[in-house]
Design a protein around this nucleic acid. Structure first.
Lengths: 223, 223
DNA sequence: TCAAAAGTGTTCATGATACACCCATGT
DNA sequence: ACATGGGTGTATCATGAACACTTTTGA
């Protein structure tokens, strides 16, 4: 069809990483501003071609550490987009991942190769390059579904947190309010979190701090 | 690392299709016997490289029609396997799909390029090539999870079927018996199936025939 | 008349939902 | 003393689980 898609015996393989974090009461995505032509001024999810000696997952981790300076985050394969004409540069098959990082320690790395790199609220996205609008909405869908039956929110919270913090994360992702008593009853009944040492003071009554029992993916019925 | 993995600027992209069907009270997978060297005599899921002008999904459908003579089946992307050394022939990134086909009309196509092509019960698999043991168990896991909250079993049944047929499909996939009354109550309460015209006679009391309300993927809580 | 699968309701246990007040702290 | 978020229990409702007998047909 297109000239460029005939050019390679094999398609190019890339990864795209949808990085989510919660900040200022909002769910945000990390985006990079494009400098090159057909998408100049558009924004894209961090990504790039894989190297011949790295696995897909290694490539995704490399993107995370190169573009956002992040290691040890929750990372899950999302979907592989393989339409013929999705990339104007040629035939690129791209595997999307999504990553969750805690609100603390959000340090995007700017580089000369790309324009700006910034966080955007998911309800307020800029013009997106490629099929990245689809990629992000697919990631949002998956995230919303998976917080209901796995412990992946551990990726969005700091090591210690209050039950109110945890509840807020759920409310933000699901875009709806939850009942405080029912939420706490449920969470405390399923061995998801355990009390941490101290309490956190604020301007008001200090709250008990908790941490996750396991900081590794597992399946639990939560909602 | 390996010589062959350095040879291409881009990895090769392939698809593998795990084809499930139910036959003779068993869940079966379609496998092809390998003729070429390192895996001679081993069996593999149907698959192959994509062409430069077809999407991943088109490639998967092409495999289905070439290897099994099948069209219009339920097909879902499963996972993309991107380890560096998963294929001894070189760097191949492979997207696995899984397909569901009704027990009727199982007509595997033999070809000169491959050895035998046959159905195997999933509890009784032969020696498998590549990482196809993983691929199949991943597909089984997904299938078992998804029949609980979607209508995908429509892909495994003929156009008309009895409620007992439907229940058997669930029992086979989940490897456990279900209560007949509870199963029927649930199924009939969720607008999944509707009565079809006739009844089916057998050696015994004839059963009411049903068909699916929608023959297209959708989400419904079933179990 | 017998064998084999079809069909049908009720009870009980469990989990989900709805709901309102007092507490501890900093200012 | 007041404003702010932290923390707690009960009653009701809906859903899932367990369970056994009668019916229809062909042989």
């Amino acid at each position: 069809m297109k000239k460029s898609s005939q050019k390679y015996k094999f398609a190019a393989v890339a990864v795209d990483v949808v990085v989510f974090s919660i900040d200022n009461g909002e769910l945000k995505v990390l985006l990079i501003e494009m400098k090159k032509k057909p998408y100049m001024g558009f924004w894209a999810v961090p990504g790039g071609l894989i190297k011949s000696d790295e696995s897909l997952e290694q490539a995704a981790k490399r993107q995370l550490s190169a573009k956002a300076g992040l290691k040890n985050v929750y990372l899950e394969q999302l979907y592989t987009f393989g339409e013929v004409n999705r990339d104007p540069f040629g035939r690129v098959v791209s595997t999307a991942y999504f990553a969750l990082i805690p609100s603390t320690g959000i340090k995007p790395k700017t580089s000369r190769e790309y324009g700006d790199i910034r966080w955007f609220g998911v309800k307020n996205l800029p013009r997106l390059a490629y099929d990245h609008k689809n990629v992000i909405s697919y990631a949002l869908e998956r995230l919303g579904a998976k917080i209901g039956y796995t412990n992946i929110v551990y990726g969005l919270l700091p090591r210690e947190f209050t039950l109110s913090d945890l509840q807020k994360v759920y409310e933000i992702i699901l875009s709806k309010k939850l009942d405080k008593r029912n939420f706490r009853k449920k969470v405390l009944s399923i061995n998801l979190v355990k009390p941490a040492s101290a309490k956190r003071g604020g301007a008001h009554r200090p709250a008990r701090l908790y941490k996750f029992v396991k900081n590794r993916y597992h399946v639990v019925e939560i909602l």
